[in-house]
């Protein structure tokens, strides 16, 4: 899975019928040192993520393994909201501190 920060949302009324009632968020990918990298993804939100939250998203056909996205044309789904992470024992991100 990939981590990223929710930087925006997508409003689309004209779309494939299967995409109805799916919340679409724009996620900017971050690296393991919490630096943004040149990659964004439009993800279906399956956990109620909000703006500026650090999230974890899954891509590929696995993204369809939720009740919301099963059988839908979706290849990126936000499946977790991050509290913290550390690399080699050093804390890199902490939700309350770095929100």
């Amino acid at each position: 899975m990939i981590i990223g920060k929710v930087i925006g949302s997508v409003v689309s009324t004209q779309k494939d019928d299967k995409m109805r009632d799916m919340k679409l968020l724009i996620v900017q990918r971050h690296d393991h040192n919490n630096k943004p990298v040149e990659e964004i993804a439009v993800c279906v939100d399956a956990v109620g993520a909000g703006l500026h939250e650090m999230v974890l998203y899954c891509t590929g056909s696995s993204a369809r393994q939720t009740k919301l996205t099963e059988g839908k044309p979706c290849d990126a789904v936000i499946m977790a909201i991050l509290n913290s992470w550390d690399i080699a024992g050093k804390e890199i991100f902490q939700k309350e501190r770095d929100a």
Binding site: I3, H32, V47, A80, I81, L82, N83, S84, W85
Partner: peptide, 21 residues
């Protein structure tokens, strides 16, 4: 394995599954 990730708000089904970098 280079690090750990903590998330308490995960999609259902992933309870108790550890996440690692």
């Amino acid at each position: 394995v280079i690090g750990r990730v903590v998330s308490t708000l995960k999609i259902e089904g992933l309870e108790g599954v550890t996440l690692q970098w």
